[in-house]
Design a protein around this nucleic acid. Structure first.
Lengths: 168, 168
DNA sequence: TTATTAATGTTATATTATAACGTATATTAA
DNA sequence: TTAATATACGTTATAATATAACATTAATAA
């Protein structure tokens, strides 16, 4: 099982998350002979500013501010599409929002744990789940191509406020 | 495991699907003391016309034609919301579309098998998957509240065209 | 019947996403 | 190094999905 859950849902040196993600992204671009332009890099960096997914128009606002010039929706959506195709980000359909992928090169489950309280989202890759889904599909002769798995609930931080306070 | 997959992805007496669904819906409304109005019943029936999910504006068009009067989006969305709350339909976030629920009273996985070829969608409820997801979440202290699971691929009908043709 | 609640009608608008076409910048080939 | 080509971005308009706010009608309860 692969997950960034502990990082996402606990205080941590987030600068390292960002740097690691940006390095991975640049490496991947070189490998794939793809161009990491200013716009694309900025969008990716914005998506890594927090572990909360951002909508396209939130990205638009933040990108305009960051680059200090007006940005139109197509610019944002183009960057999003590029990053999606490289596997550097994911789309969370139930939120119409996007989030950086913590392990763009690894096996995927497209499984997200989304906190309904604080909005943070972590990703998991889970061979058992993949196998179970695959064989559940196979049982009814369904040939699995891709999947989108969203779990909603309370992250560790948000599910234990009482325990944290009980020391007072 | 509970699924309507075999029904969805194979030729069948679809009138029975519709009738069964409408009966279940009426029963549920009585049980819940909810009102099954003309608009709501029409939307539900439209969603059961096929095993393909429909978008809100497809529903709007079809509802306007069926009721022979102009229908505005809020009317559709209100009916959708009502039916969602009763568990009579589901929303498929990746498609922005809605589909009738074949077993509104049973345990749910919110697991959908969506054919990328013909657009049909079947639903499964699967205790093993639920347990696996639940415990995968628990492992990282995530308290699961709800889930949305969408599998994309080829349904039986669409995945075996060659085999079907091979008799010629 | 009247009061009350629930449902629908109506208008306007918010939010998310894409089409179409022009311009600029980078890469490749000559 | 320049011309040709491909790629990315700018710009305008608009499509597609969804909701807010308030008026009206219908159903139920007092």
């Amino acid at each position: 099982m692969l997950t960034n859950s502990r990082l996402v849902h606990q205080p941590h040196d987030h600068g390292r998350c960002i740097n690691a993600a940006m390095t991975r992204a640049h490496d991947l671009c070189i490998e794939q002979n793809a161009r990491m332009t200013t716009t694309r890099e900025s969008v990716l960096r914005l998506l890594w500013q927090s572990h909360r997914p951002l909508g396209a128009y939130q990205l638009q606002d933040q990108l305009a501010e960051l680059l200090n010039k007006p940005i139109a929706p197509p610019t944002v959506y183009r960057a999003i599409e590029f990053l999606l195709q490289l596997g550097l980000i994911h789309r969370l359909p139930s939120l119409n929002a996007y989030i950086g992928c913590p392990f763009p090169n690894s096996e995927h489950s497209n499984l997200f744990l989304i906190c309904t309280e604080c909005g943070s989202a972590s990703e998991m890759a889970h061979a058992t789940i993949n196998n179970t889904l695959q064989s559940a599909g196979a049982k009814v002769n369904f040939t699995l191509q891709s999947q989108s798995l969203e779990l909603f609930g309370l992250c560790p931080q948000c599910s234990e406020p009482l325990e944290a306070d009980s020391n007072e």
